[in-house]
Computed example of a mutant assay.
Amino acid sequence: MAKTAQEKLDAKREKAYYKKHKKMYRTKPGDVIFNIFNYIFFSAFTLTCIFPFYYLFINTVSDNELVKRGLINFYPKGFNVDNYIALREVGDLGTSFIVTISRTLIGTALMVVASAFVGYIVTKQEMWHRSFWYRFLVITMYFNAGLIPWYLNMALLGLTKNYLAYIIPTIVAPYNIILVKTYIESIPAELEESAFIDGASYMVVFRKLIWPLSKPILATIAIFGAVGHWNSFQDSLILMQGNEKLFTLQHRLYNYLNQSSNLGTLMSQGGTAAQQAMEQALNSKVIKYTISMVSVIPIFCVYPFMQRYFEKGIMLGAVKG
């Protein structure tokens, strides 16, 4: 198809512009050297971050005898997936996995909704004693009563040996509320004003305007909340003693680590019992690797899909204080 006179003129102008500014965009030797060192440094940094997880993985899919002798360092040997299949026989691991997933999904969802709504209402100047409540919220980030008063308070509220202990205390997250508030303040006020002129209430504005526009920052705090719930074990360790059905996956892993250490102490006693203990300890080493790998897989699966929201949300939510 023949080009029109205007298309030919545009192409000629583009060619002339590129020729005129060619020297300006030419890469200098210093830039090339900087880019080379930049790529080398960040490549090495990336490999350093990835290697611990890679090391766990290759030890879980290698021959157990080689793993016991510490011969797996850089690549798997004697490929097998029996370790992952054997996890089904580890006592109460499935229950712990369900508890951890459920608390992560429910706790994160409630935290995101609460952070979004509270972050929105503290941006309203007409809120009753707005400055006091916002400052009170910020103060809680720096001061707390301590572990023992926290436990006594949870006990008085009936949250020991109770699944709700995983959910209720995490609904209000001051740092996440501040991020949401800052992000909402970056949304043009004219959008809300036009909605109010059309007769929309605060709840309608929040649901149909603020919530959709705040997806980047909400995705960001969702990542924070999900990782926190998934990795948490202290609340399970302190509050769930006597109710093993509510142990989280991380708490179960912590127990396996302690059991392995205790078996290692028995090895110094000598005799057949020590040999059996040593064998169990070596087997538990493989189990620990496998459980550790399983515990990080969900985060690896979720994070790539949230990455684009995470980068945008954390930058926009941190522009103003």
Rank of each mutant, 00 (worst) to 15 (best):
4 T>F: 03
5 A>T: 14
7 E>M: 09
8 K>D: 04
9 L>Q: 12
14 E>A: 14
16 A>H: 10
16 A>D: 13
17 Y>M: 13
17 Y>V: 12
17 Y>G: 02
20 K>H: 09
20 K>D: 06
21 H>M: 06
22 K>W: 12
22 K>Q: 15
22 K>N: 12
24 M>P: 00
25 Y>C: 08
25 Y>K: 15
29 P>D: 08
30 G>D: 01
36 I>T: 12
38 N>D: 09
44 A>S: 07
44 A>V: 12
49 C>R: 06
51 F>C: 08
52 P>C: 06
55 Y>I: 04
60 T>H: 05
63 D>R: 04
65 E>Y: 13
66 L>I: 01
71 L>S: 14
71 L>P: 04
75 Y>I: 11
76 P>M: 08
76 P>K: 10
78 G>F: 06
82 D>M: 11
85 I>H: 10
86 A>C: 01
89 E>C: 06
94 G>I: 05
94 G>Q: 07
95 T>G: 13
98 I>F: 03
98 I>R: 03
107 G>R: 12
108 T>Q: 04
108 T>Y: 05
111 M>Y: 09
114 A>Y: 10
114 A>K: 08
116 A>R: 09
118 V>I: 15
120 Y>A: 01
124 K>Y: 01
126 E>V: 12
126 E>C: 07
131 S>A: 11
135 R>K: 13
136 F>Q: 03
138 V>C: 11
144 N>K: 10
149 P>Q: 09
154 M>F: 10
158 G>T: 06
160 T>S: 05
162 N>C: 10
164 L>Q: 05
166 Y>K: 00
168 I>V: 12
170 T>W: 08
176 N>T: 02
183 Y>C: 04
184 I>H: 07
193 E>P: 04
194 S>A: 15
194 S>R: 15
199 G>V: 03
199 G>Y: 06
200 A>L: 08
204 V>G: 09
207 R>G: 05
207 R>M: 04
208 K>H: 07
215 K>F: 08
216 P>C: 05
217 I>D: 01
217 I>V: 14
221 I>D: 01
222 A>L: 03
229 H>L: 01
232 S>H: 06
234 Q>M: 14
235 D>W: 06
237 L>P: 01
240 M>P: 00
241 Q>T: 14
243 N>Y: 07
245 K>P: 00
245 K>Y: 02
251 H>D: 04
252 R>M: 12
255 N>Q: 13
256 Y>R: 12
258 N>F: 06
259 Q>N: 13
262 N>L: 15
266 L>W: 04
266 L>R: 13
272 T>S: 15
276 Q>T: 15
279 E>T: 11
281 A>H: 11
281 A>W: 11
284 S>W: 11
285 K>V: 12
285 K>H: 14
286 V>M: 08
287 I>F: 08
290 T>P: 02
292 S>Y: 07
294 V>E: 02
294 V>L: 13
295 S>W: 03
295 S>F: 01
295 S>C: 10
298 P>Q: 02
302 V>S: 00
303 Y>T: 10
307 Q>W: 04
309 Y>T: 05
311 E>I: 15
321 G>H: 06
